[in-house]
Design a protein around this nucleic acid. Structure first.
Length: 543
RNA sequence: UGCCCUGUGGUGUAAUGGUAGCACAGCAGAUUCUGGUUCUGUUUGUAUGGGUUCGAGUCCUAUCGGGGCAACCA
């Protein structure tokens, strides 16, 4: 049981909030969701689900200059894809009228004032954490003057940045957020939902807690950087005498070899270091989806990393483990040769073709079987043959035997090289009595390798991904470097593969997740066409 | 040198005064028509010094380390 569950269970025991649980996931629609958000989503929706409560989706859209409906749509899609349904969909902008009224209320009670100082003056007046700030010369205006000025701010009489509404709290507080925080700023910008109705917009601190309050949120779960905002969150709820949700902070997710900053992710997209938000190398939900991660694997990952308050850096191999664990049980097996070299079975009859029976998923008998054509000339992986094989290598070599999966045991006789010394053909003989399923087929051989019939197989494009960054902590930069200096130049390698002939576009897009035997898990990319299938490598098999 | 949060194997996370457990990673072995899966075994840990207690990862205290806070961002 994590610490949030402990708090919630104690609240339920004490009958707080009528023993009900109501949470919310509150993204700002200014970017795409990433794996860190997935953790938050799983916590918020998970707590609601576990304690028979509800979870809302609320867009925290108080800054029109950064927000866009494109992001709203992607966020909705990603949450649904993860497998969660929100009770209600809200927007902080739904509450702009109420928020405005509450602002006037605080002005009337002498708890807020209009400040005419410039941004620099306000910043300077706030002081530094180790020393108190100084009060604004406009701090003690009359209620009437404040009300008049605030209404004229709303009416559009003043330019951007000329005035703000501030809460009157304590310029000497050791908590910087108490040094008369800004509640409203003037922004003559078109909002994605309210259009041009407003030219003043509330700040996060004057919108978030109240939005929670209006929705009857009981447990407002957020990340650690909002911890210092909590006293302010509490202060506004108390000052306004409204329902007071409990803010609880947990440590955000960090992962090795990846960046989670929305700003930097946006930069990668805008400056074309990656091919869009859904590039399979991105830690975004849509990127992971296109990479071939399943919702279950991501949900299980979120469960496995746990919830606590200490900073953490999760090993990316845990995410990969979660992918393999899920995909192993569900992915349909197929044979594909990514780095081909020709194998010729000298004693196999010219022109003969056999249909070999292959198992679709050894972990799931219900998945059935299929047939794969077998002939005299096959493609095998270049790495499955080694001329000078040591004891640790137990695949094909001259005079050595291996099994061709679902087919025969073969023995390598000789190889042919080109002038440059590259192997162009591997010759072997087969034992006709060792066909899979035959009585003599159980002879032990050290290895089984996969293959593709030269005359039957079809070509497909395969996109091989490696980590986007080569540094474990891309943000840990030497003097004069940025995270971009740690970009892995080999994070994307496009290659051509030979795949089974029965793998049609229709079949690939229906099945989606494949295991290319002995290689890894692959996902049928939406770029696939009838002419050319495209597969993304999700993750390799272990080892 | 203000305030807040936080220190448990390599990485995460449990243990709520009573045998430091689990997962990932690593290593070794068994099984296997995937060097996958499965199974077994195994290396590695309570930041440090005092104190309270029959007993401390847990409580007290001091020290040290990590993170956050000074946007008209969220």
């Amino acid at each position: 049981m994590n610490f949030i569950e402990q708090i919630i269970e104690e609240d339920i025991r004490n009958g707080k909030n009528d023993a009900k649980v109501q949470t919310r996931f509150p993204p700002e629609p200014n970017g795409y969701l990433h794996i860190g958000h997935a953790k938050s989503i799983c916590i918020n929706f998970g707590m609601a689900e576990k304690y028979n409560g509800l979870c809302n989706l609320r867009f925290d859209d108080t800054n029109p200059v950064k927000e866009d409906t494109e992001y709203v749509d992607s966020i909705r899609e990603d949450i649904h894809w993860l497998g969660f349904q929100w009770a209600k969909e809200f927007y902080a902008s739904d509450y702009f009228d109420q928020l405005y009224l509450w602002a006037e209320q605080l002005i009337n009670e002498g708890l807020a004032y209009v400040d005419d100082q410039t941004q620099e003056e306000i910043s300077k007046g706030r002081g530094v954490p180790t020393a108190p700030g100084i009060e604004s010369p406009y701090r003690n205006r009359s209620v009437e003057e404040n009300l008049d000025l605030f209404r004229r701010m709303r009416a559009g009489e003043f330019p951007d940045g000329s005035r703000v509404l501030r809460a009157k709290i304590d310029m000497a507080s050791p908590n910087m957020h108490f040094r008369d925080p800004i509640m409203y700023r003037i922004l003559h910008a078109t909002h994605h939902r309210t259009g041009d109705k407003w030219c003043i917009y509330p700040m996060y601190d004057f919108a978030h807690g109240q939005s929670d309050s209006i929705e009857g949120i009981t447990h407002s779960i957020c990340t650690l950087e909002f911890e210092v905002h909590r006293p302010l969150y509490d202060w506004f709820c108390e000052a306004l005498r409204i329902h007071h949700p409990q803010q609880i902070e947990f440590a955000r997710l960090n992962m090795t070899y990846t960046i989670m900053s929305k700003r930097k992710l946006l930069q990668l997209v805008k400056e074309h270091y990656v091919n869009g938000w859904d590039d399979p190398r991105m830690p975004t939900i849509c990127g992971l989806r296109r990479r071939g991660y399943t919702p279950a694997s991501i949900r299980n990952f979120a469960e496995t990393v746990g919830v606590a308050k200490r900073d953490n850096i999760i090993d990316v191999s845990l995410l990969e483990f979660c992918a393999r664990e899920d995909l192993n049980k569900t992915a349909i097996r197929t044979m594909a040769v990514l780095d081909p070299v020709k194998l010729i079975i000298d004693n196999y009859p010219e022109g003969q073709v056999e249909e070999m029976t292959a198992v679709n998923n050894p972990e799931d008998p219900e998945a059935g079987t299929r047939t794969v054509p077998f002939s005299k000339e096959l493609w095998i992986e270049r790495a499955d043959f080694r001329e000078n094989a040591d004891k640790k290598f137990y695949r094909l070599s001259i005079d050595r035997e291996v099994r061709l999966k679902y087919a025969y045991i073969i023995k390598c006789t000789h190889i042919v090289k080109d002038d440059a010394g590259n192997i162009t053909e591997i010759h072997c003989t087969y034992d006709p009595n060792t066909k899979s399923g035959m009585p003599d087929s159980n002879r032990k051989v050290k290895a089984t390798i996969h293959w593709a019939s030269v005359q039957h197989s079809k070509k497909a494009e395969v996109r091989l991904f490696d980590r986007l960054f080569s540094a474990e902590d891309p943000d840990n930069c030497a003097e004069g470097e940025t995270f971009l200096d740690h970009l892995n130049p080999n994070s994307l390698v496009v290659t051509e593969a030979w795949v089974e002939p029965t793998l049609t576009l229709e079949k690939a897009m229906a099945i989606k997740h494949f295991q290319f035997e002995r290689l890894g898990y692959f996902y049928a990319d939406p770029d696939s066409t009838e002419e050319k299938l495209v597969f993304n490598k999700t993750v390799s098999l272990k080892q």
